[in-house]
């Protein structure tokens, strides 16, 4: 029961949702509409998994005084304070959540976290990007054409550079990316079918239950 019923649910939902795509009958549309509403509600509850794991991980770290446990207190306090402010004062325009926490804490932290990648890219470009083979040289040339052609200085150096960059993107790049799309799509469809048919059962978790 613990494994069979979930597998039966997956099979039923998978097959019916595939079939309803091709059947525009009112019953099919009604079923589709109802399950679509349900899935949004169930999907929102999935947050419980993430939040629970987060609290368990950090509280365990604090309890056992593991290395850097005091940073976990910061995470837990930030979580509680943000949640209390968010749920207590709401998300309307001018709210503390939006005007203070989001605009002046979340935005700079998140944006800066990704901004520092530019420096690592510069360092990696200097140390690791070597034209050791013909293929690497080709990659390098294509990268240079796009890098220059897609910014204003490219047109100042040679007027045709933006057109060349656009050609690289529209013809050889497009062909390569389309081949990758085929691979990814076929892989995705195969995995979905394996899940529906119960061949892929990793999501059930380990153990004999």
């Amino acid at each position: 029961m613990k494994r069979t019923i979930p597998l039966a649910i997956v099979l039923t939902m998978g097959i019916t949702m595939m079939v309803q795509f091709f059947v525009p009958h009112p019953v099919s549309v009604g079923y589709y509409d109802l399950t679509t509403r349900w899935i949004r509600i169930v999907g929102a509850f999935a947050l419980v998994l993430g939040t629970g794991s987060f609290i368990m991980f950090h509280s365990d770290k604090v309890r056992r005084r593991r290395q850097g446990w005091y940073y976990s207190i910061i995470s837990l306090v930030a979580l509680v304070v943000t949640t209390v402010i968010g749920l207590g004062w709401g998300i309307r325009p001018g709210s503390i959540l939006q005007n203070v926490i989001y605009a002046n804490f979340l935005v700079p932290l998140n944006a800066s976290m990704f901004a520092i990648l530019a420096f690592y890219m510069a360092s990696a470009a200097y140390r690791a990007f070597r034209a050791r083979t013909k293929e690497a040289a080709l990659l390098l040339i294509a990268a240079f054409i796009v890098m220059l052609g897609m910014v204003p200085i490219g047109a100042s150096i040679w007027g045709k550079l933006p057109e060349l960059a656009e050609w690289v993107l529209s013809v050889p790049n497009m062909a390569a990316k389309r081949a990758i799309i085929f691979g990814v799509a076929l892989g995705g469809i195969a995995t979905s079918l394996k899940v529906i048919l119960g061949i892929e059962r990793g999501w059930l978790g380990g153990g004999k239950q």
């Binding site: 200097y126 140390r127 220059l148 204003p152 200085i153």
Partner: peptide, 23 residues
């Protein structure tokens, strides 16, 4: 931001070129 963007791209290209020459 586009002038900065242009200059940043040139810098990255120069870094790749100089890195390769040294290598």
């Amino acid at each position: 931001a586009m002038d900065s963007q242009s200059l940043a791209h040139v810098v990255i290209m120069l870094l790749v070129i100089v890195g390769n020459i040294a290598y």
